[in-house]
């Protein structure tokens, strides 16, 4: 490529000017329609006959301030649980998806177990698994039973591991057989082929759906509060019961959204990058 000083022809200049005018027009139209819609929404909500009562019981600034420390303390539990459960579920999911790809008669029981696991735990409602783990397991009164928080975390890992295993498996199966043929033809063993050729491509491809499931997990970790530990939502519930005002729930909701924003932003960024890589190919 030789660097040249290109002087656009009159036609090109006209085209560029036209496109600029169109862009300005679209921005103005978008701003106007957003303003109109926003105004209509505000009028509809604040003009509703019950608006005054709703504002009192959901948007009380004083109660929000009072509830914030408790709810934030609960949220810290959510964050800690999320980190451990996400790592655990990713590890379980990857391991199970790999077990499901094993061939050969020796591995039949392993394969059958892995398949049975994904069927069972994707089918079971999370709340039932949580109850079994946090209420049923301690009921056995075995020596060294871990605390309820750990048991609840295990339940979450098992359920989400089942979903993530299927996401990983979809990724593994999306790698074209010709890649396996090329790797095996170089003398790589099945394990080496998985490790160096298939998994790197598979994980890159399924990173967006994997992160999406982690975002969903972020909301579900709070369900361990059913067994006692106080998370953000449970803390809000307690505060609500004390004041007969729902504002603490709104506080918890806002905190959850703030917590989700970075994770969702990462997901979008990874998705966009994957799409660009695909387009370059």
């Amino acid at each position: 490529m030789r660097p040249t000083h290109h002087h656009p022809s009159p036609v090109a200049r006209q085209r560029a000017a036209y496109r600029r005018r169109q862009t300005v027009r679209s921005v103005l139209v978008a701003a106007a329609s957003t303003g109109v819609l926003g105004t209509l929404l505000v009028i509809a909500v604040t003009g509703a006959p019950g608006w005054h009562r709703v504002r009192q019981s959901f948007l009380d600034a004083g109660i929000a301030r009072a509830a914030l420390p408790e709810v934030a303390a609960g949220l810290w539990l959510n964050v800690r649980l999320l980190v451990f459960c996400a790592l655990g579920a990713l590890a379980v999911g990857l391991a199970v998806s790999l077990l499901r790809t094993l061939r050969g008669p020796v591995f039949f029981p392993v394969r059958a177990l892995a398949t049975g696991y994904t069927y069972t735990f994707r089918g079971l409602p999370l709340i039932i698994v949580l109850y079994v783990f946090t209420l049923g397991v301690p009921g056995l009164r075995l020596q060294g039973t871990p605390p309820v928080l750990v048991l609840g975390g295990l339940a979450l890992v098992l359920v989400y591991g089942g979903y993530l295993a299927e996401v990983f498996r979809a990724g593994i199966e999306s790698v074209h057989p010709s890649q396996l043929a090329a790797a095996r033809s170089l003398g790589l063993t099945y394990r080496q082929t998985m490790r160096y050729v298939v998994l790197p491509q598979a994980i890159r491809r399924v990173a967006p759906p994997l992160l999406n499931d982690v975002v969903a997990l972020q909301k579900d970790v709070g369900l361990v509060s059913l067994a006692g530990p106080i998370d953000a939502v449970r803390a809000a519930q307690i505060a609500t019961a004390e004041t007969f005002n729902y504002t603490p729930y709104i506080v918890a909701g806002v905190l959850f959204v703030l917590l989700a924003i970075p994770l969702i932003a990462v997901t979008d960024w990874v998705t966009l990058r994957a799409a660009r890589r695909q387009a370059a190919r």
């Binding site: 010709s178 890649q179 043929a181 090329a182 095996r184 033809s185 170089l186 003398g187 050729v197 491509q201």
Partner: peptide, 15 residues
């Protein structure tokens, strides 16, 4: 397979 090489029509390089 370590004693021979094969080259495919579609290259099959690792992307």
């Amino acid at each position: 397979r370590r004693r021979m090489g094969i080259v495919f029509q579609a290259y099959n390089l690792f992307p």
